[in-house]
Amino acid sequence: MGMPPTPYTPDPRRSQAWIPFNTRSEQPIVTGTSVLALTYKDGIMLAGDNLASYGSLACSAPRLSVTIPSYTIFGASGNMSDFQYLQHDLDNLIIQEEVTAQDGHQLGPKQIHKYLSQVFYARRSKMDSLWKSVLGGGFKDGKRFLLFVDLLSVTYTVLTLATCYGVYIAQPLLRKAFEGSEVRKIKEDWLHVLFYRDPRSTNQYQITTISAAGPTISPSLKLETEWSFAESIRGYGPQTQ
């Protein structure tokens, strides 16, 4: 038998169009879990914990971001490296668009949303997705805007949003509680529930908001938790049966 077939022959003419299979990400590696977002009276609020998981190995990393001096905040679940790549990409975009031009034409959340959907669509069409979901929010010209983009570039805007486990645990609560109550309290309740139920989450979290007053991002906060109930649950604690 002759030479084994080479899986990939470099062809400089097609270097852009054809990426060797082994350089595409097939699955997320270091992941972040749920991010929650909602629209409130004055703007948009995002919350997410600070955990990056490598399988079951945990480390701390922020998952929320503010694009300065634009009008957009965003958070992501999924591959952390893709999140950081996107942070850089947006930073560069902002530098190019706003700092260099300095002509008063700033990208608002709607423009950033379209841009993200283009970036994600281009990557998924190369079968090389950015393996993550992004939630973002913005406030510009008196209007609130909450956005979503995922690895397939499926996009939409809604009033409340959640990713990962949050879709099942928090989103129903979000929608139910949406009218009225104090938003920050709601957020913390959801993070509690998520922390109790999602093994790939932590009780260290951040909250970021954007309103007419501009973006804010909290330092790392800690949820007070109560685990004594676990004693009485079968499968937890010292019970042997």
């Binding site: 034409h105 990208l107 423009q111 841009y115 283009q118």
Partner: peptide
Amino acid sequence: MVFNRPIPVNR
């Protein structure tokens, strides 16, 4: 296409 924004005239 990219930004869903009419291009700023000065640019």
